[in-house]
Computed example of a mutant assay.
Amino acid sequence: MTLFALPDPDTLYDAMRARDASYEGRAWVGVTSTGIFCRLTCAARKPKRENCRWFDSLGACLEAGFRPCKHCRPLDPAMAAEPVIGTLLDALAARPDHVWREADLIAMGLDRGTVRRAFKRHFGMSFLDLARLDRLRRGFETLGEGGTVLEAGLDAGFSSPSAFRARVGRLLGLAPSDFAQEPRLTVDWIDTPLGPMIAVADDRALHLLEFMDRKALPTELKALAKGAKGMLGFGHTQIHDLLARELGAYFDGTGAAFTVPLCYHGSGFSHRVWDALRRIPAGETRSYGELAREIGQPSATRAVARANGANQIAILVPCHRVIGADGTLTGYGGGLWRKQRLIETEAGYARAARSERLPQP
């Protein structure tokens, strides 16, 4: 975690170009064209503005799928401050296919509590979480590129295809062997500063966007697979590409408008609620009662709440903008901490909108 609030992307880009050392340990840049992340003081050639994503922690960089730069070595300060971090990152690099467990830490003579605290302090996740995320991502990347389940399992460091099938099956509610080779609906992995998301789309519209750890995700994917008559598979479409660009702009603070076409799966009433959610400006919130009144059914507060919870296109259909009547945060499938972060992110858009409406001197 960090107490440093990132400034706007333009300020960060200027700081990177100037190699401003005041941002050391407080901000990092991920370069989408190379897949690496750097310190702002990195001496390498500066990336284009549109290829930059900004992060406030090392863990956020890694969760978003970026690898550390070999030139500026952004992990070095953490390893210097906590020698156990360097020891374990070296061990992870030396054994990328190993399935790490707490027993391995004990065998290395390391204290589990010390390891957990050190990694939580600098990465926001445990070492075992970091190792699992890295292995699973490699498998998804292989499948997305058209690789076989066997190739994906090996790339992900699993001992056998069946072990990989079991892990993905627990995560998604489906085994990779259940996915079609020529799918009607395509599943892709999209990284965000709030963690990886699963996006399901065809060539015309987005059908699902959920955080990987949402409990309802397996059920939602099974329903989509049934609706597509089993024709659900890995890969990406132009819709995924557009979604990734617009999510990047959203989290960078450069744009809260989404043009990705959406395909709803729900009742007509739910469609009306989701459309109403999309009309809430970024930076504003509504209560369930207010939303019910906006769709012309003031007595349907509970039904509105159910439709809100059934939304399976996170962020673009902004169910996170609905709060309790007393102003408190209410339940959110992606976790209340994410809801808080999304509302905080959108507060910047609200401030910008207000400043534009102020009369100019």
Rank of each mutant, 00 (worst) to 15 (best):
I313G: 08
V317F: 06
R321N: 04
R293I: 03
I313D: 03
A305P: 02
A310D: 15
Q312M: 11
G289M: 02
V317S: 08
G289H: 03
A325P: 01
A292W: 03
C319T: 11
A303L: 06
G296A: 08
P298L: 05
T301L: 10
V317M: 09
N311F: 12
T301V: 15
T301G: 04
A307L: 06
I323S: 07
G324Q: 01
T301R: 14
S299F: 12
P298A: 11
N311E: 04
I313P: 02
C319E: 12
N311H: 04
A305E: 12
P318I: 02
Q312K: 07
Q312I: 14
Q297I: 00
A310N: 15
C319L: 03
D326Y: 00
A325Q: 07
I323L: 15
T328H: 09
I323Y: 02
I323M: 09
G289R: 12
A305W: 05
L316E: 00
I313K: 01
A325V: 00
A314W: 08
I313R: 00
H320V: 04
Q312R: 13
Q312F: 05
L316M: 01
I323V: 15
I295G: 07
G309M: 10
G309W: 05
R306D: 11
V317I: 09
R302I: 10
D326H: 00
A292Y: 01
P298N: 04
V304Q: 13
S299K: 13
C319H: 11
H320S: 09
E290F: 10
V304W: 10
Q297C: 08
A325T: 00
A310Q: 14
A310F: 15
A305I: 00
Q297H: 12
L291A: 11
T301S: 03
A305D: 06
V317P: 00
C319N: 14
V304A: 06
S299D: 14
A300V: 05
V304Y: 09
C319F: 10
R302F: 15
N308D: 07
A307G: 08
A314L: 14
